[in-house]
């Protein structure tokens, strides 16, 4: 197994509030790591560390080690890092552009302007996100014309179009109906052949359905990390057990 992310003793503060406490874990290549925990448990802060989105908040402070393929992420320039580590947000967030322009936005920013190349990227990414058939005849219309579930798959395609190695999903199904959720999960399972996936979710069952391993966060601490089966059948920590059984959060 190849280690993709190596995190050791990671601490994060926003202003004086400590959001993560001494978190250490490794994320393997081509796995789906589910991250569960109640709100304010630090799980979103955790994945936003992996592509350094936390730094947008200017009260942000951190120490510890976060390495991607053995390189400190803080020493990688933001743009190439985020190109390698893509992100899908909680709500479908299409840009106010056409479907086509949404998908190629990242590629264009990275200097790809060849029309045929862009078309190729659009088709490949939309197919990977299982939405090609639904939109192939109307690539020029506004992305806002799509349903919520379609929008979210478009956002996944947009992330894939940049050619990432890792995809961070930040509660990607929180605004979606069960059918759309199933479609998004299906894409995730297919994508893990090529990509490393980190899935933050409020939905414990979703974590159980798609995750190879599951990490449980509580109050900024990593309580337990294990094979998903293990976590859901015989958790070692009783707080994990309590959360999974729905005692809090």
């Amino acid at each position: 197994m190849v280690t993709k992310f190596d995190i050791e003793n990671l601490n994060i503060w926003f202003k004086e509030v400590r959001a993560l406490k001494d978190v250490s874990l490794k994320i393997q290549a081509n796995e789906i790591l589910s991250v569960i925990g109640p709100s304010n448990s630090g799980k979103t802060t955790f994945i936003r560390m992996l592509n350094r989105m936390n730094e947008l908040q200017y009260n942000f402070r951190m120490n510890g080690k976060v390495e991607l393929d053995g390189f400190d992420v803080r020493k990688i320039d933001l743009e190439p890092l985020r190109k390698r580590v893509g992100m899908v947000f909680a709500l479908p967030l299409p840009l106010p552009l056409s479907i086509f322009d949404n998908v190629v936005y990242g590629a264009r920013m990275h200097g790809i302007n060849n029309k045929n190349k862009l078309k190729e990227i659009v088709e490949r990414s939309l197919k990977q996100a299982y939405i090609w058939d639904e939109v192939k005849d109307r690539l020029g219309v506004s992305a806002y014309k799509l349903s919520g579930g379609q929008q979210q798959r478009l956002c996944i395609a947009r992330t894939l179009a940049v050619g990432p190695e890792v995809i961070l999903y930040d509660e990607p199904c929180s605004g979606l109906d069960p059918i759309s959720t199933a479609k998004v999960e299906e894409t995730m399972l297919k994508l893990k052949e090529k990509y490393t996936i980190v899935l933050v979710t409020n939905n414990v069952k979703q974590a159980a359905r798609v995750g190879d391993r599951t990490a449980f966060f509580l109050n900024g601490e990593l309580v337990e990390l294990d094979k998903t089966d293990q976590i859901f059948t015989a958790p070692r920590d009783k707080r994990t057990d309590g959360y999974i059984r729905g005692k809090f959060g």
């Binding site: 743009e79 890092l81 709500l91 967030l93 990242g106 920013m109 992330t159 940049v162």
Partner: peptide, 16 residues
């Protein structure tokens, strides 16, 4: 702000 976050998360620079 979400537009800015999306754009940045795709690896666009701040000025882009």
């Amino acid at each position: 702000d979400s537009f800015r976050e999306v754009s940045l998360s795709l690896g666009a620079s701040k000025w882009q």
